[in-house]
């Protein structure tokens, strides 16, 4: 059976660390970084990239449009 795999790209410097993407992620892919970006925000990042299914939920709710989403069937 084909499995869907996703991947996200987060623009670190534009992220404001609001965490809205993290709570909207159905698979627990995203977490907040332990370090801050240039503006002092703990930015979002794919902490568990292997869990990503490319559903784009995170990107859809991101107020600052910092997430790009890719998806493929493996």
């Amino acid at each position: 059976m084909a499995k869907i795999k996703g991947s996200i790209v987060v623009n670190i410097e534009k992220c404001k660390g609001c965490e809205v993407c993290m709570v909207s992620c159905p698979t627990g892919t995203i977490a907040m970084a332990k370090e801050v970006n240039g503006k002092g925000y703990y930015y979002a990042f794919p902490a568990n990239p292997e869990l990503c299914i490319g559903c784009a939920n995170c990107a859809m709710v991101c107020p600052d449009g910092v997430i790009t989403v890719y998806k493929t069937k493996i």
Partner: peptide, 29 residues
């Protein structure tokens, strides 16, 4: 552009499902 990425092999133009529209400018909100 400083980025963090998920699985790199998946990040190809043909796999793109969502990106910021160009109607949004590059200005930080």
């Amino acid at each position: 552009m400083a980025v963090v990425t998920g699985i790199k092999e998946i990040i190809k133009p043909e796999n793109l499902v969502y990106k910021k529209t160009n109607i949004m400018t590059e200005n930080i909100l």
